[in-house]
């Protein structure tokens, strides 16, 4: 990570565009690159920092062309690439959208209104909550969903990581560099993460409690323990810890669109093979879409397909 990062300094802007891209993760930024190259007047809305979830990843090793690159550096490459081809960026959150009309209207949290002929929904997803007692109560006192953001508060302390997928294992590995003790708790008998990450985790100081779920997060002023139930034996254990990092899946950010675009039962947006939704000129790319794989490379690929298809509205 560069010591001084300039990625989210926003630029002056107009309000009428050919393409409005909502979200600046890999899917949104790839769309912006292709839209710029297609000569479309493009704006990208990002509510926090351009890059999306890859900013939460310490190192990335599965994006072709980069054997190993920090999430931050890859995000910056994506962003600069999109800016080179002329995309505009603004740090505003879309709070209302009319996607049904021919000209799409988007309203932001700053009270600004934008129009666009086409829209790419690239809003990604948020960490799913575990849904156990204590999770809300200790939200700001030991419970976290972002190891890169909050890891430094647990220097030389004990943490547990809940989940068995790529995020859980990779963020757990990140925490082994900071915390005194890292224990990964997973409900199945084996991890789901990519093999290489698993092997590294097994070699690291990380401990594993498998076939087990956390049923409660407890403590007085801040987190002091989690209650763990072994699913095979039903045995309950009170496990001492100072922090709880939760990586148990994703919830798509489709709240403001879900009355207009079709989604599956979990809220992921349904598209055709060109990434177009049930609404003409409205596309969905990346993690927010119903898709068998959620990786940087697939999000970027979605963006390319969407924008190439979209050019049919500008012929």
């Amino acid at each position: 990570m560069p010591l001084f990062n300039l990625s989210n300094v926003s630029k002056p802007k107009e309000t009428n565009y050919d393409v409005a891209i909502i979200g600046a993760g890999p899917g949104g930024l790839a769309s912006a690159i292709y839209a710029g190259r297609a000569g479309l007047k493009t704006i990208v809305f990002e509510k926090s920092t351009e890059g999306g979830q890859i900013l939460l990843t310490d190192m990335i090793e599965d994006y072709p062309g980069f054997v190993s690159i920090s999430g931050n550096a890859l995000a910056e490459n994506f962003l600069n690439h999109a800016k080179t081809f002329g995309a505009n960026f603004t740090n505003e959150e879309i709070i209302e959208a009319d996607l049904v009309s021919k000209i799409k209207r988007l309203k932001t949290d700053l009270g600004n209104e934008y129009t666009a002929k086409t829209v790419v929904i690239a809003t990604g997803s948020n960490p799913r909550k575990l849904g156990v007692p204590g999770e809300e109560e200790f939200m700001n006192r030991g419970v976290s969903y972002c190891a890169v953001c909050d890891g430094s508060f647990f220097k030389d302390k004990r943490v547990v990581v809940i989940g068995g997928g790529d995020s859980a294992v990779e963020e757990g590995l990140y925490m082994t560099k900071i915390a005194k003790e890292v224990t990964l708790i997973h409900r199945r008998d084996k991890l789901r993460a990519q093999k290489i990450a698993q092997e590294r985790a097994f070699k690291s100081k990380m401990k594993f409690i498998l076939d087990s779920v956390v049923t409660e997060i407890g403590g007085s002023k801040s987190v002091e323990y989690v209650m763990i139930r072994n699913l095979k034996t039903n045995e309950m254990t009170k496990y001492p810890t100072d922090g709880v990092f939760i990586y148990v899946g994703l919830i798509p950010n489709t709240q403001i669109f879900k009355d207009q675009v079709k989604t599956d039962e979990n809220g992921f947006i349904l598209t055709d093979e060109h990434m177009e939704t049930n609404l003409e000129g409205v596309y969905a790319v990346g993690d927010v879409r119903k898709t068998p794989l959620r990786q940087i490379v697939t999000a970027a690929s979605d963006g390319a397909i969407a924008v190439i298809d979209m050019t049919k509205y500008f012929d």
């Binding site: 926090s48 920092t49 939460l56 740090n91 972002c146 953001c149 909050d150 430094s152």
Partner: peptide, 13 residues
């Protein structure tokens, strides 16, 4: 904030 938190500048600003 922490310097590595991508959500934080929004709250600061």
């Amino acid at each position: 904030v922490t310097p590595t938190c991508p959500y934080c500048p929004r709250a600061v600003l």
